[in-house]
Simulated scan of single mutants.
Amino acid sequence: MRDGSIPGVHGRVRPLTLLGDPVLHAPCEEVTDFGPELARLVEDLFATMYAAQGVGLAANQIGVPLRVFVYDCPDDEDVRHLGHVVNPRLVETDGVVVRGPEGCLSLPGLEAGTERHDHAVVEGRTVTGEPVTRPGRGLFARWREHEGG
């Protein structure tokens, strides 16, 4: 759509930040304001992720150096997991280490064999500041490690 929106999603599609952009190499800042600007950022992250046909997207991947990510990712049993985490911390990884293909929306068209655990837990906050814990297994755990570390 011309206005940068996609049907059924409230945010606007933003340009992806690609490899080489300094924002991808700098540490992201902790979110301290859980107001309407953060809610708009999360909506824009979802819209951009869906437009790029990804399963997850972090704020720095649209040029915003904040610790926020969104996801819409299946696990190995094809159960859909949909949500977001603000100020994520990877607090647990265990289980079997599996090497598999992994891509990134900031590196379009590239995949690399990457080792990840088949169980991971991320803690953080919701867009309103409530604490959350998000465990994952299989592909969902791989993605947790990719985004939540």
Rank of each mutant, 00 (worst) to 15 (best):
E29A: 15
D75L: 02
T133N: 02
E145H: 01
V13A: 08
G56V: 14
E43L: 13
T17D: 05
L105H: 12
T128K: 04
R99H: 09
T32Q: 14
L90D: 02
H25C: 15
A47I: 06
L107C: 06
N60W: 00
G113A: 15
G149D: 14
M1R: 11
L105V: 04
Q61L: 12
T133R: 15
V122D: 01
D44N: 15
L19V: 13
D33S: 12
P36M: 04
R144A: 15
A39D: 08
L82C: 10
R2K: 11
A112D: 12
V96S: 11
H84W: 03
T133D: 07
G11N: 09
T32H: 14
R12W: 07
C73W: 04
L24R: 13
V97L: 10
P108W: 09
C73K: 07
Q61R: 13
G149E: 09
D72G: 13
L57V: 11
A26H: 15
L90G: 01
V68A: 06
M1W: 10
V122S: 06
C104S: 06
P131A: 05
V91G: 06
G149P: 09
R137S: 09
P131N: 01
R99S: 10
G136R: 12
G54Q: 10
G103T: 10
T114D: 03
R12Y: 08
E111P: 00
R137F: 07
E29K: 15
Y50P: 05
V85I: 15
H25T: 14
Q61K: 14
N60H: 13
R142N: 02
A51W: 09
R144G: 12
R125Q: 14
F34N: 03
V79H: 01
E29H: 13
V9A: 14
G56Q: 13
L139D: 01
E130W: 00
E37H: 12
L38Q: 07
L19E: 14
D33K: 08
V91D: 03
N87K: 02
D75R: 00
N87R: 01
E115F: 01
A26L: 15
N60L: 05
P65L: 04
V85L: 05
G100L: 02
E30Q: 14
L110Y: 12
V9T: 12
V85R: 07
T126L: 02
L18Q: 08
R99N: 07
V68C: 10
V13R: 10
G100Y: 00
T93I: 09
R142W: 00
D76W: 02
T128D: 13
D118V: 01
E123Y: 03
L45E: 06
H119Y: 15
G109A: 04
G54C: 12
E102S: 01
N60I: 08
V97Y: 00
M1H: 15
D78N: 08
D94G: 14
W143H: 10
E111A: 06
L82P: 09
L18D: 09
S5W: 06
D118A: 05
G103D: 05
F34R: 05
V42M: 07
V79F: 00
H25P: 11
C73D: 09
R40D: 14
V70Q: 11
A120R: 01
T93E: 09
D33H: 12
R2E: 13
G149A: 08
F34Q: 07
C104K: 10
L45A: 04
D94Y: 05
D21V: 04
T126Y: 00
V127Q: 12
L18W: 05
L41H: 07
